[in-house]
Design a binder for these strands. Structure first.
Length: 256
DNA sequence: ATGGCCGGGGAGCCCGGA
């Protein structure tokens, strides 16, 4: 089973690139973040023509997540349980496919909105950890994948790619990520590639791509039995070199 | 040392259709 996650930075701008990638790579499930549109604006026809059905949690202007699947998928949640905001931004969707629960998340960046904006990021992490505990207690097979907006360690960013005070590298952000690992979840890409950069994002600015000033912020965390099935996991760097790319590349994993 | 890029939304304008 091939599952991928991709922050596409507007699905309408990126639909040709996404469709091309789907045709070549043929994932069973593709998790999209930052689709930047409402559900009725989602280019579902483009993907249906390739055999993929869409579940969309959209929002005008910013945010928005979606799941594309060529296997039967059951929609479970359209927002992350446990958030204090009863109408949170469109940043989480949870589905089940072949007995596997898949949480698709787009975590707050945390650099805007001052300290309140950063606390909002930590609250999302808290709710995600609670969700993980709930699913672990239920003995469910699950994974949480998407844009975590955290470089977990110093290995996960090129020197000089971010300031030391950036919300993506702040100790509280990293501690929140580690809490998920300590619950027993496995960082799929890092587990298989301990010594490679595996960057997933290069800023549009400052020639970051040409200078390889990348960061690793798109992750897939696997529950224990799912981790036992892990056969491959890596970002697809080539997508960043395409014309008019997203600033993120897809991260593809394969489960046996 | 600094800035360098994208996206959507909407204002404002132009255009085409009624």
């Amino acid at each position: 089973m091939k599952i991928a996650t991709w922050n596409v930075n507007s699905v309408r701008q990126r639909q040709v690139l996404v469709a091309d990638w789907l045709e070549r790579v043929q994932p069973d499930v593709l998790l999209l973040q930052e689709i930047k549109c409402e559900a009725h604006q989602f280019p579902a026809d483009t993907f249906e023509a390739l055999g993929y059905t869409a579940h969309v949690v959209g929002q005008k202007s910013y945010n928005g997540v979606a799941v594309l699947s060529r296997r039967p998928v059951e929609l479970r949640e359209t927002k992350l349980p446990g958030l204090s905001d009863p109408e949170p931004p469109a940043r989480y969707i949870e589905v089940e496919a072949d007995g596997l629960i898949i949480g698709n998340l787009y975590l707050t960046n945390g650099n805007s909105g001052g300290e309140a904006g950063f606390q909002n990021k930590l609250e999302f992490f808290d709710a995600l950890a609670c969700r993980a505990e709930t699913l672990l207690r239920a003995d469910a097979d699950f994974l949480f994948a998407g844009d975590y907006n955290v470089c977990p360690t110093e290995r996960d960013l090129a020197p000089g790619a971010l300031s030391a005070t950036d919300a993506l590298v702040r100790p509280e952000s990293r501690a929140a990520f580690r809490r998920l690992l300590w619950l027993g979840l496995t960082d799929a890409v890092r587990a298989l590639h301990p010594d490679e950069n595996c960057y997933t994002f290069w800023d549009y600015q400052a020639g970051a791509w040409n200078r390889d000033l990348g960061i690793r912020i798109d992750h897939a965390l696997l529950s224990p039995r799912v981790a036992e099935r892990l056969a491959a996991a890596a970002p697809d760097r080539d997508e960043r070199a395409k014309p008019q790319p997203s600033d993120h590349v897809p991260v593809l994993m394969e489960l046996g």
